[in-house]
Structure formats: C-alpha cells, structure tokens
C-alpha cells in the first residue's frame, strides 16, 4: 500500500466528514501540521471536534478553522493566544472542554494504546474532577479519565519515509507522537521524505504502523515569542 501522497489536499481525500473528531499535533505554533490544517479548512468540513493542546493564533494554525466557524468543540489545555477563540466561546458559539495538559497527553496516549481509562491525581479537588469517578490507591485519591481516539489525526514531523516512520525535531515533537497513535487514520506532513533505510531504526519516534498517509511540504514555522539575548562585546 502506497502511503506517500502528492499534497495535503490529496492526503485528506476520503478521510473527512461533518461532525468528525480531529486530533491536531503541536504545542503553540511549534510542530503543527500547517499544510494539513489549511487543506482541512478547504474541504469545507463542519461541526468538527478538535483535540489540540492550543487553538493556534488568530491568523495561523487552527485559527484558520476558527475564522470559518468549522469547529464546534475544542478539547484543549490552553487557548490564551487566540482572541477569536475567546470571542466565539464567550458568545456561546463554541464548546470548550479544558483538560489539564498532562491529562490531555495521556488521554491520547491511552486511546492509541487501547486503554479506555486511567486514574490520575491531576485535578482532584478542582472543577476538573466534578462528575468523575474517584478512587483511592494507597491512601491517595485519584480520578478516572478516559482514553481519546480520533477519526483523523494530523501531525507534523521533521523526516519520514515511505513506510510512514517519523522522526521529530527538538520540541516540535510535543503532542505529535501520541496523536499519531490515536488516530483511526493518521496523516503526517514532513519537511523531508527520505529514502527507505536512511532513518536509523533505533531512533524512530513514531513507527510507521501508526501512519496511513504522508506528504512532504514546506513549512513557515511561525514563532510566537521571539526571545533573544545580547552577545557580550569582547
């Protein structure tokens, strides 16, 4: 089965439908599937539930899907960088489920690993715990959180091969590996598709079994907070 597709539009063909759940990798704008997000917007699909740690910014990343009101619900841990998001949410146009970041990551990991639920201390005694099963282990209270799976996961990696093996670069890894594993279909966009055998098998982050389609694409890699230090003059 051929996994390499010519572009983002072709890679999403036949995979999208209204009301679907989409996982979108990345942390802030770092390691997001820039091209697949735009291609997803251009399919015109609506009523999306999007699982993503953040919601992009107003004019980049998932902000594109918010501008066009294609998202019905977001499951995220932090959305503070997107004013359009805040406006839609306060106006009641958008549903929002906040998950603590580690709980969100583990829900994706668990979903991909076939684990329907797990207990965690995170959120005990807060609004996050309301309505959830509580259980004691060794005298400590934990709450039950559920695994998450998506109809489609869109992820971004540095390099990949025709088998769908992926390698991420630096902190652009973030949510991408767990989301790749939790998609019923996973599409990866990479900066470079390399010949089979050129990735070190000991250093592959996402084994190709999790990836159904892969494209090579150009990335703008916008920076949210450019912080630098001055060189001391000699």
């Amino acid at each position: 089965m051929k996994k390499i597709f010519p572009d983002a539009k072709a890679a999403l063909d036949g995979l999208v439908f209204d009301g679907m759940t989409v996982m979108s990798g990345g942390f802030g704008l770092c390691g997001i599937a820039e091209n697949l997000i735009i291609a997803l917007r251009d399919t015109g699909v609506t009523d999306l539930t999007v699982v993503s740690n953040n919601a992009g910014i107003d004019d980049f990343g998932l902000g594109f899907l918010l501008q066009t009101c294609q998202i019905k619900k977001m499951i995220s841990s932090y959305v503070g960088e997107n004013k359009e998001f805040e406006r839609q949410y306060l106006a009641g146009e958008l549903e929002l489920e906040f998950n603590p970041q580690g709980t969100l990551a583990e829900r994706c990991r668990a979903g991909g690993a076939g684990i329907p639920g797990f207990y965690t201390k995170t959120g005990v005694g807060t609004v996050i715990a309301e309505g959830k099963e509580h259980k004691e282990f060794n005298g400590e209270t934990y709450i039950l959180e559920t695994g998450l799976v998506a109809d489609l996961s869109i992820v971004k990696a540095w390099k990949g091969d025709e088998q769908g093996n992926l390698v991420y670069r630096k902190t652009a890894r973030n949510f991408n590996p767990v989301m790749a594993s939790a998609g019923k279909a996973t599409v990866a966009e990479v900066e470079e598709i390399v010949p089979l055998g050129s990735l070190n098998p000991d250093c592959i982050h996402t084994p190709g079994i999790y990836v159904q389609r892969i494209i090579e694409a150009k990335h703008e890699k916008r920076i949210e907070q450019r912080t630098v230090r001055e060189r001391q003059s000699a």
């Binding site: 932090y78 503070g80 998001f85 906040f98 603590p100 580690g102 995170t122 005990v124 807060t126 996050i128």
Partner: peptide, 14 residues
C-alpha cells in the same frame, strides 16, 4: 479570562 490551566494542575499534583 478564558485561557486554560495548561500544565499547572499536573505540576501541582505531581
């Protein structure tokens, strides 16, 4: 303010 907890709840719990 609608921003979210990010990793703060996990940090204080763990």
């Amino acid at each position: 303010m609608v921003k979210g907890m990010g990793g703060a709840m996990d940090l204080v719990a763990g």
